[in-house]
Design a protein around this nucleic acid. Structure first.
Lengths: 224, 224
DNA sequence: CCAAAAGTGTTAATCTTACACCCATGA
DNA sequence: TCATGGGTGTAAGATTAACACTTTTGG
């Protein structure tokens, strides 16, 4: 590679902030950085775009390599292109965010890459500008929740109203009034009531709900 | 350049959908495509990213070359990276949108590039995926208007309430009730009343308003 | 004095918020 | 039978939507 800046190749990478909601906590998929500097530091998984790949192709590769499953919901987030964002040279990163449920989406974490879901509340520093990415993704999700439904990709297929409330409370960082939450969600008209829960919990059994796929998808596309 | 896809260089371009609001019409800056295929077709101005440039640097260049002014508000919109989006080879385009006022921002349209503001309602076909970009930009602006102020970059420094209403009506594609619009905007608390208009129009003279810079910027950052 | 554009208030309907107790179940 | 978590309704307050006439001005 010549030293003439004009002929130097600009690298294009794709990265994914993959979120899950597990045990009332939101978590993001992190891997260990493989090269110096900051070898071993936590980072968001990413990969270089090859000539014949679409952005979505790289997303699939990243997902396959880190969790062994590429059938995951992702949305484009932002392009990060600051001049000195990466010590290896000039790179543009096109970041995506994704949502996953650890029960229904089969996930095999790649130990070699140090892949794991890291709790966001007690958040460790990520290398490079990766904290900025996660922050932006969380803000995007938060805003999106105000005019589109959330949950299909994060919850199991059947869930209770309290679980859905917990998810909303967690991502929006606010408490809800049970009665008002229920009323509003049901009015939004993307849920279907199923039957009583069978789970062995203490106390009264809860009604299970599922998302009505058509209605959910419509609202997800066009907003409320 | 070798034929081995692995070593082929992926081009990174930056493009800007630059909007103005003029004579009650929203318009977007278009230029004429210089190379075949589709030579002469209308396109959104764009430019290749060089090794030592930030994304914002390219935005400035595009603006300077086409309108002779780079002091323009821009926001990142989306990365477009479909495999066959551009006939010259693999390119990733990182698109921005910008807002401008033709009276207060000095604009010299570059005739050599065929730069002009094209009315959006009677919209001509743009080459490549550029119509998609403009649509996405308009949707983004529309959504943004619901929780942040709009106008500072599109209107002259002083303007009437009816002009602001017209802008909102145009970008949101809906009619407003004069009284309700006025009330809501004034409650939002980012305007300052100035004095009576002196313009030689027919009918009663209107009160002039300006944006309170601090309040406008705060709401613009954090939303209502 | 009239045509054109600006400006102004009130009411009904809707939506949002706050709030506390009973129910079903398993231990 | 009691501790645990699930489920339910109402009223006050806030917000939004619908609606038509008067004012100012230049021609």
């Amino acid at each position: 590679m010549s030293n003439n800046p004009e002929s130097k190749k600009i690298g294009v990478t794709v990265s994914i902030c993959l979120f899950c909601y597990n045990n009332d906590e939101k978590k993001v998929l992190t891997v260990k950085n493989e090269k110096p500097p900051f070898k071993g530091a936590l980072i968001i998984p990413n990969k270089t775009l090859k000539y014949n790949q679409s952005l979505e192709d790289v997303c699939s590769e990243i997902l396959n390599e880190n969790i062994g499953n590429n059938d995951i919901y992702v949305e484009q987030l932002n392009a990060f292109g600051k001049l000195y964002r990466h010590p290896e040279g000039r790179t543009i990163d096109i970041s995506f965010y994704g949502l996953i449920n650890l029960e229904k989406d089969k996930v095999v974490l790649n130990k070699n890459k140090g892949a794991e879901f890291t709790n966001i509340s007690s958040f460790p520093e990520l290398a490079f500008d990766h904290n900025e990415m996660v922050d932006m993704a969380l803000k995007r999700i938060k805003r999106r929740m105000k005019y589109r439904p959330l949950g299909k990709n994060l919850l199991p297929d059947q869930f209770t109203m309290n679980e859905l409330e917990g998810l909303y409370a967690s991502f929006l960082s606010k408490k809800f009034d049970k009665r008002n939450f229920r009323r509003r969600i049901i009015e939004m008209d993307f849920l279907r009531e199923i039957k009583k829960v069978q789970r062995n919990t203490r106390g009264r059994k809860a009604i299970l709900y599922e998302f009505d796929p058509k209605k959910y998808n419509n609202y997800s596309k066009t907003g409320f």
